[in-house]
Design a protein around this nucleic acid. Structure first.
Lengths: 195, 195
DNA sequence: GTCTTTCAACTAACCAGATAGTTAGCAACT
DNA sequence: AGTTGCTAACTATCTGGTTAGTTGAAAGAC
């Protein structure tokens, strides 16, 4: 055969991931994806059906990979946050794609069951750890997980104007802020020294 | 005069804010903005020049309003976070517009001086409060502000799949999670009870 | 071994509708 | 009569999506 269908699909997914991460769904250009993937535009429609479905294919694969890569450790949430942070540093497009998904796709789409289930499992794991006294019960498990996920992504969700204020920051420093913040959340309640 | 230029511009800005918040810059439709504003499309180009410049006008006004409305109280960061949260609840489009700005506009645009200056001022205020012993010095001032801003916006930046896990949450509960989390950050360092 | 049929992978050209931006002129108030 | 606000119609271009046709490897026929 002249070509390799699987390889072509992979090139298309990769090119699409780049394109969607950079421009979003509305901003992405199908021709550009085909060009970068060294494939013909018609193949996108043959393999994936539409621009939106191509995005879904990209996003689903990304979700699957991400969920596989970062298992939770309820007994050490600071380090879990740190590993999440590492994942975001390693593949910055993941955060951007997730944000585009939230802004552009989420309301016209049923929630992805894989994500719901994965988060539910993590909440249950934290609840279990709370019952065993391994984790603070200052926050409900679902709230605590939300806090951890938010803090792990904090440096990617901040306004670009903020970057000038933290120019000297190394990746290690940013990671330390994340883990330290989560550590503070799970520390036992104690006296508070003002705001 | 047949019309009122200022009123028309205001209607355009408001319609554009809605449209951009919902669809982003690439996804927004100039015709739809004109329709909603009950104005003619040509006026958009007359008053603002281009679609991108219209977005900038919307965003700049939004930034000005927001900065005016929520002054910082470095001595009570939990309550500051709470007030930020209240602002986001009151005008959800603010967060969305800021996110679109970050994703679509930020790299092709110089950082907005007003935002940089406002944040710099807040960092300085926190540093001052730290010197006076009013605020924890566990985190550098710029990091602490980043944490507070991130936590105040946490419920808007979380993935939509998470919503099923926190269905029962009232606005008050979400606010409490935010303020409690910031309170934990600024609490004095103490013994830690696991993760 | 070679001829031929088949079929998946691929391509180039095309299309219809959408979209940002323009223009020429009208309407009303001073 | 001039100026300002406004309008409807228009255009050039872009863009997602389609289609008719080509290529080339391989499997079966002889």
């Amino acid at each position: 055969m002249a070509g390799d269908a699987q390889a072509t699909q992979k090139r298309l997914i990769e090119a699409a991931a780049q394109e969607f991460a950079a421009y979003g769904i509305a901003g992405a250009r199908v021709d550009r994806i085909a060009l970068v993937a060294k494939a013909n535009k018609a193949q996108i429609y043959h393999y994936f059906g539409s621009k939106d479905q191509l995005f879904d294919a990209v996003f689903n694969e990304l979700v699957a990979t991400t969920l596989r890569e970062v298992p939770i450790d309820p007994a050490d949430l600071p380090e879990y946050a740190g590993r999440l942070f590492d994942g975001f540093e390693r593949r910055p497009e993941v955060q951007r794609l997730a944000t585009w998904y939230r802004l552009e796709r989420a309301d016209s789409q049923v929630p992805l069951d894989s994500v719901v289930q994965a988060n539910r499992g993590k909440v249950l794991a934290i609840e279990q750890a709370q019952r065993e006294g391994l984790v603070t019960d200052r926050f409900a498990a679902a709230d605590l997980l939300a806090l951890v996920l938010t803090l792990a992504a904090m440096w990617t969700s901040i306004t670009p104007e903020y970057h000038v204020l933290i120019e000297g920051h190394t990746s290690e420093h940013r990671r330390h802020v994340v883990t330290e913040a989560v550590a503070a959340l799970v520390a036992v309640r104690d006296t508070v020294a003002g705001g």
